[in-house]
Each structure stands twice: as C-alpha cells, then as structure tokens.
Simulated assay, not measured.
Amino acid sequence: MNVVREPLASVIARHDLAARHALGQHFLLDPGITERIVELSGPLAGRHVVEVGPGPGGLTRALIDSEAASILAVEVDPRAVTIIDELATEAPERLRLIEADATTLDLTTLCPAPRRVISNLPYNVATPLLVGWLRQAAAWERLTLMFQLEVAERICAAPGTSAYGRLGILAQWCARCEAIMRLPPGAFSPPPKVWSAVVEITPHAEQPSPELFRAMEKVTAAAFGQRRKMLRGSLKSIGGEKLLAAADIDGARRAETLDVSEFDRLARIFLAQGT
C-alpha cells in the first residue's frame, strides 16, 4: 500500500504527545524499523493482530500496510487514541481501537482466531502482560514483542545464568522463545536508558492446564524468592523436602540450576500433592 502519510514527528508535535514516563512510553518513529518488526513476525495473511500501546502509530502504520486480516489497537493514553482514530480512516474495516488498560482486558474475547500480538510494549506493563498471555498461550499463534533488553534476556535465559528465573521458566515452559532483533536507545523517541530487543514467542502445541500453570507460579515464586538459598530451604514453605524427594531432585541445589523440565516435574507433583 503506497500511502503518503504525515511524518510521525509532526503528528506527535500536533497532538502534543510528549512521552510519559509513568506510561512507559518510548516511541518508534523509523518506518524501516517498524516494517522490519512486522516482517519478522511472519506471514500475516488471514491473521488477526493485537497491538498494545500503539502511541503515535508507527507500528500501526506498518500493520495496516501488511496483509493482516484485522488489527486491534489497545491504547490507554487519550492523546494517542486521537491519533489512532485518525489513522483508522485509512483502514476502517481492518483497524479497530479500544481505549483501555490492556492489563484489565481478556484480549482473546475481543480478537478472533488465529490471533497474534505484535507490539512495542510499554515498559511499565510489559512483564505482567506477557505472563497474562502465557496463561492463555493456547489462544495465541505467536507473540512478537519489544522489551527492554534485560527483560528479553530473562525471557530467553538458559539455566545456570544470572538472567535465568521465573519469567524465563514460565515463558520457555509454554513457548519457544527467541530474541530476533536488538535496538539501541537512539532508535526510540525519547531514547530509553537501555537497549531493547524484540522477542518471538511461539506457543507449544501442548499447554498446561490453568491449575498446573498456577502450581508452576507458586513453585517458581518460592524457588526464586530466596534465590541464593538451597532448594530445601527456599521451597520449605510449600513442603520442600517431600516435594523434592518425590521429584528426585537434590535439595542442596539452587533454583537457577534446574532446567524447565525439572520445574515442570516439581509443579506437577506439587499440584498432585495438593499442598
């Protein structure tokens, strides 16, 4: 689609859309970058895409230009809502806007399948949004998400590394996770203090039940709540000795040494024991 559009910097100035730290806003203005993110997300023909925090609409423009069947934009900032409303006139039958806090919504009820999420997530809600989507991983075909680099590294971290913890275990338990793009602070307006990265999250065919997911959350919360403790100590509040014995895991180990399959075993036993 060859559309002559007002430059994003001009749109931002016209609507006085100064980024707000409280909303975790850092805007992507380079169309080459936003187009590349959409390209890396894979073929979108017939797919229904959710974008959280479109801001001035840089990524939204690239999504409109893609073959996505529909785009659902969720924005909490009234200033940005006005901008996306203007942009919706380009594709009134494909682009729908909801003014709301995405953390309060069940997006699977608002977007038909097959569903994808493609977003430059607001930094302040990126992690809770991801965990919420992981709870519903079976409903999503793929998530292509921008995070602070530190968060992206946690999502993709391997056992035994300093970044490995609860978030990586939950994400890798439910999906294949891969960092596919890194961006320096200067790619954003205003520049954040850190690098950022796009992570591709592709849910596994088999997903844990809601009950098992909650069990995994409890086990990992206990295990990493006192990270430097041995497991027999950190898991004490949830029946550590009995749980570790049933899972055949040495209680002298620390949480960061267990791989995802070992945490899966602990979560399943924890759920079965009804601790």
Rank of each mutant, 00 (worst) to 15 (best):
L129D: 06
E39W: 09
Q136C: 13
A100F: 02
D106E: 05
E67L: 13
L105T: 00
G46T: 05
G42V: 03
I83G: 02
R61E: 13
R96T: 15
A100I: 06
V50P: 01
A45P: 02
L107I: 02
P114K: 04
L59V: 04
V52T: 06
V81M: 10
V81E: 06
R79T: 12
I98C: 03
L87W: 02
T82V: 14
I98Q: 05
E90S: 13
G46L: 03
P78W: 12
A73T: 04
I64K: 08
F27H: 07
H48E: 11
T60L: 04
E99T: 13
E93H: 14
G57I: 09
P122K: 01
Q136A: 14
I37A: 09
I98R: 07
L121W: 00
P43R: 15
R94S: 11
P31A: 12
R96N: 10
G32T: 11
I83M: 09
L121G: 02
G46V: 06
D106S: 02
T109G: 14
A45W: 11
R94N: 13
L107Y: 00
L72W: 00
P43S: 15
R135Y: 12
P112I: 02
E99R: 14
H26D: 06
A73Q: 03
E90K: 09
R79L: 14
I33W: 04
I84V: 13
P43N: 14
Q136I: 08
T103V: 13
V131W: 04
V117L: 13
R94H: 11
I118C: 07
E75Y: 00
L63I: 03
Y123C: 03
D30S: 05
T34W: 01
E90A: 14
L130R: 03
L72H: 04
R96Y: 07
Y123E: 04
R94P: 02
